[in-house]
Design a protein around this nucleic acid. Sequence first.
DNA 1: CACTCCCGCCAATTA
DNA 2: TAATTGGCGGGAGTG
Length: 875
Amino acid sequence: ENIFDRSRMAPKTPIKNEPIDLSKQKGCTPERNPITPVKIIDRPQPDPWTPTANLKMLVSAASPDMRDREKKKELFRPIENSEQSDTPDSLQYDIVDDTTVDEFEKQRPSRKQKSLGLLCQKFLARYPNYPLSTEKTTISLDEVASVLGVERRRIYDIVNVLESLHLVSRVAKNQYCWHGRHNLSQTLKMLQEAGELQYGELMTFQHKEQDLEYKFGERKRETIPHSQDRPLLDFSEPDCSSASANSRKDKSLRIMSQKFVMLFLVSKTKIVTLDIAAKILIEETQDTVDHSKFKTKVRRLYDIANVLTSLGLIKKVHVTEERGRKPAFKWIGPVEFSGKTDELRGHSPTSDSLPGTERGACAQHQICASGKQRFTRHTSFNGAQPCEGTRTKVSSEPNSPHQERQDEYCSKMINLAAVCRQKIEEDTRNSSITSPFSLLPVPGDPDFCVNPLPQAVFPVVQAEVPSLSLPIDVSSQAPHPSMPATSKTENGKATLVPNQPFLCFPSSSLFMLCGGLQENNLSETLPTAGDKGNRSAEAQAAVPPAVCQKRSSHKCTSPSSPADDEEPAAKKQTMEQSDLPLSLVVPKKPFESPKAESTPGNGCPSAVHLETYRLDLASPAAPESASKESLDCQEQEKRSQNTDPDEPPLGNEHTSKENANQPFQPQYLYVQPTTGLSSFNLLFSANQAPGAISLASNQLPSLSVPCVMVPSAALASFPLVCSPSFTSPLSPVPDSSFSAAASMNFSMSSLASTTPVFISTTAMVTPSVSSVPSVDLQQPAHPALHLSPVLTRSCSAVKLDSPVCVGHPVTLLKLQQPSSTPLTPKSIRPAHHEAFFKTPGSLGDPVAWKKNEGNQTRNASSVQRRLEISGTSPD
DNA sequence: CACTCCCGCCAATTA
DNA sequence: TAATTGGCGGGAGTG
């Protein structure tokens, strides 16, 4: 009988760990198998393993003895134990054949082997850290539990923590969706922000823990009231729920996990002792903290800590105090997220610091189809919304998967920006104050000033970003000065392809994109909004966070996307975080640009940035890509630049030089979608012959001009950059985006009417720094806006010199929001950014900054109109 | 003995 | 009502 039962049970019964692994491979895990070192060793059986098989074997083998022992426990348990003997042993014990009791005992997996941490590792091993966006991995709790040979309860412990970090999300009843670490940095950033709100002050004093404790206590009291809801913005939902039904959710392991992580992120030392954490987390009744409660909390913290440890986010340490040594954990995960973005939603910069990131993976996460079924459960960081009255649902809404994604992008962009800034700042410091740039008139925008991010640590992009082109938009910094130039451009010259009927250049929306090319050097994307981007232009040089790049490249499409690349870490600079996203393109650059970096200190000459930006762009040019044409273009550009009165000499010089050196990358024009095309973005190659771009030609046979359509959504997040000429047809990257484009059907007719198009090989804008432009910018309201609502939201035009093209200034627009998703005003709003970036010294006034942004936005539209495309298209 | 934290009871939630 | 989730704390393993 027993046997029989067992057999039945078997399925359920957890298989031992070891065996499990094996089985697991075959089993469920969708993606990659765990790397795990599972040992195969043990099994006596040669057979193919399946979980069940193992069980059976075990059962048979174990038989009598085992049973007995186990009987006491439940069937399952015993079984496991017995099994373990087999498997676990592998680890520790060799396989001992005998079933002798003693042996058995020994075999019994030690406690460690059963630890939650180990279990978690096994769990994690089953899924890729950075799953491809396309694949959605679902996790079946039952399955996992059986595979890993543990009871479900344990799986819940793991999943709950992972869910709190958004590594997984619950899809349905026994099912979770695996997201991997794509969002991790964003999530952490959010937690950090939330943590600062809640615990910030406290942590400041961390050193003195005791003090802290007291403070915490007090704090708690204080904050709680309002915080109640708040505290967890991050947890928003949970909070809400908690508020409402305080019962379970409040205490939820998820929330505790988030709070625990917040403590680390807020802590300066990055070390949190368990007791403090427990006290803090007990929140509510802190006063009464009864011992038992405390103990319970600590137990939970251990559970959480084990999972976090498995994730490589923390490690155990000991803090010795007067009293003695206390258990504590140290944060060893990414810390940088730059910042402090205010924006609730999201933009966190994330640089994935994780080295391990897989290149292929796109940032995108998958969205679980089911969405949030349980609102309460989701822990979302919606932000600050007060959940109180409302309950979870409300809060949850905001988090549409979409938004989240976008947010991510934004955040990444932001990170880049931040990095860039930082870098810039550094450079600035290094460089004499009077960098050439300094000369440039600064619009007075504080905006331009770069702030160094204190902590930003950006890991180099590393492999992750393989190909992308970075959005250059950032570079757009130049903006204001360029205004005049811009105006010129406006006029329009957009040359069109004569043949093309539908091309128009209207005001609104043309952009040129430069494709960066292969160089790996730098690709950067600009983060956010164009303006900001401007500043950060340099940043572009810097390496964008891998993530960003990836995304950008992938999504965006930039044909130009270069091949891959790694970016030099050094380069990174921080950009602003604006919400916006934007641009596309990107050339990659060579590092060299350091010079560019040098900016006048705080001064903030945006112009400078621009220049630098150019340089960067130029430099990167991939030799390959550089084609004759490109060269020509460059030259022309240079000339033009030189000629331009407006441009500041310095910038020009730099640019020219670099340009000369660099080859160019393919450039594309980006057309904003206007009303008609709201959903599409067109990219045209400026210089190329129609055929050049594979996609374009293929997809749009009818058109003579090569162009690529990209869903606006894809582009939305990127800043646009223009570059005048470009030669190389490379578009290694484009794939995804293109493909997307391809999929879309579009009829020319539709396009023709509404869209403006653009074209030109080079856009000429004078890079001049003159203040005038700025004025102009401001003036115009949003002319463009009406055209494309989406775009309108945030557009700031920035001028740049085209990086590629040597001298040409380019205007950039920055779109804040992705078209597809409606943004809330908040999100759009740039205002907060300052805070993030601003560093004490370097940044100008935040206020000013904001102002600028606003101005820019307006300007952008105006700019667009004005934007003139000087270059003639070869076509 | 102090740390850790496994284990699984059993209540809250869901289906 | 049954199943799923998950809070909770006893108490065992470790050092």
